[in-house]
Amino acid sequence: MPVISVPQAFNEDELYVDLEGIFGQSLFLKCEGFNFAGSIKLKAATEMVEAAERDGLLTEDSVLVESSSGNLGVALSMIAASKGYRFLCVTDSRCNLSTRMMIEALGSQVHIITEPDPVSGFLGARIDHVRALCASDDRYVWLNQYTNPSNGMAHYRRTAPAIARQFPDLDVLFVGAGTTGTLMGCARYFRQWHRPVRIVAVDSVGSVTFGGAPGRRMIPGLGTSRRPPLLDESYVDDVVCVAEPDTIRACHRLARRGFVFGGSTGTVVSGAMDWLSRQEGRELTAVAIAPDLGERYLETIYQTNWVQDLYGGAGGAPPPRERGAVPVPATAGARAPA
């Protein structure tokens, strides 16, 4: 029975979902959302804060500040509450309302950027704001997940070894690309492993991470509007780019089988299934990393009006239920006609 005294001490690291019965392709989905922060970002947040403490960067007067699309903001809020630090999360208008409310519930503050930079988008505008804060007051400490080596080191030390223990015959690993911390940490670990593992990065259409054309992206988590400094493409074997309607379709398909995952997970699963469908005649041991669960997306990718307003008929309407819909009376208490 686990007994903890701080929330970051717990993370379920050995749970996988076999997706073959849902998608018809063998793929094991590593679930990273079962911790008190609700996402894989807990690992990076913990590693970065502890490194800053070891380096003497944090004092009782310090104010942690970070640019985040949501999940890292929640993780840092939780750790800040646990350790007694103040934290300011700089996000943008695409951040889910429930995520912002979670950050505030943990005692941290949220600053929302409403206008993107003309060249570098919302990410660039967020980073510019963080830099301005740090220049204005030396109490602000920016962990900078985009360049901080501890971001990737968290997954080199924890995520990749956990996968290796469970899948000693691993052939291919699918990892979503945001800051690329998870991607690079896992890729570096498996580059040194006892057998070759193909690393497939999954990105969003509209992201410039791997040289694609910039475009509108409304689902937070994966993709960037500027190339991540942590990225070293020599460690990446393939890249799959997923359009947001396909992300939504994957999420809805999983939900219809009882698994409510977040947008980043839907993107990774969609990209993985696309890549696996092109490997004719090959039996592969494949794992994909699911960064988070879906409760924070109920007002967006699981909300019909939001999907229809943004994507119209291409917006990933959920598939019909296999056993038919449950009949609901038009009026509560109405009697059926005799």
Rank of each mutant, 00 (worst) to 15 (best):
V208C: 08
V242P: 07
R94M: 02
G262V: 00
Y16F: 15
M153T: 12
Q145T: 11
L276Q: 10
T331G: 11
V328F: 08
P149M: 13
L106D: 06
Q109D: 14
Q109R: 15
N96A: 15
D238R: 14
D61E: 15
C241A: 09
E20V: 03
C95G: 01
T99R: 12
T209V: 14
S225A: 09
I127T: 11
D128A: 15
G294I: 01
Q279E: 10
P116V: 11
V236S: 12
L170Q: 04
G211Y: 06
A9D: 14
G124S: 13
L284K: 09
A332W: 15
S77L: 02
A187W: 02
T114G: 13
V326G: 04
P229Y: 04
F34V: 15
L173V: 05
R227P: 07
G333S: 13
G121K: 03
G281A: 07
S5R: 12
V65D: 00
A125M: 13
E244D: 08
F87V: 05
N305K: 15
P7S: 10
R256V: 01
G24A: 08
P327T: 11
S82D: 14
R198A: 04
V200I: 12
E20Y: 07
L222C: 02
N305I: 06
L230K: 03
H252L: 09
G324P: 00
G21W: 00
A250I: 00
Y85L: 05
C241P: 00
P327L: 14
G266I: 01
S270G: 03
R249M: 00
Y140A: 11
S82E: 04
G73Y: 04
R94S: 08
G178Y: 01
V287Q: 04
V141G: 08
I301L: 11
S277C: 10
V17P: 02
G185V: 03
L293K: 09
G185L: 05
G212W: 09
G107P: 07
L64P: 01
K43F: 09
V240R: 09
R257D: 10
I163D: 02
A213H: 12
A81T: 06
D18G: 02
F167R: 11
C31L: 15
L133F: 10
F87C: 10
A243P: 04
A288S: 06
H129V: 04
S98G: 05
A336I: 13
S108F: 08
V239D: 02
H155I: 12
L19A: 06
S204D: 06
T267A: 14
A9P: 03
M153A: 14
M1D: 10
A154K: 08
Q308P: 03
G223V: 02
N35Q: 07
V307E: 04
V17K: 03
V90N: 01
P116F: 08
V74N: 01
T147D: 05
D169A: 10
L298D: 04
S82M: 08
F87G: 01
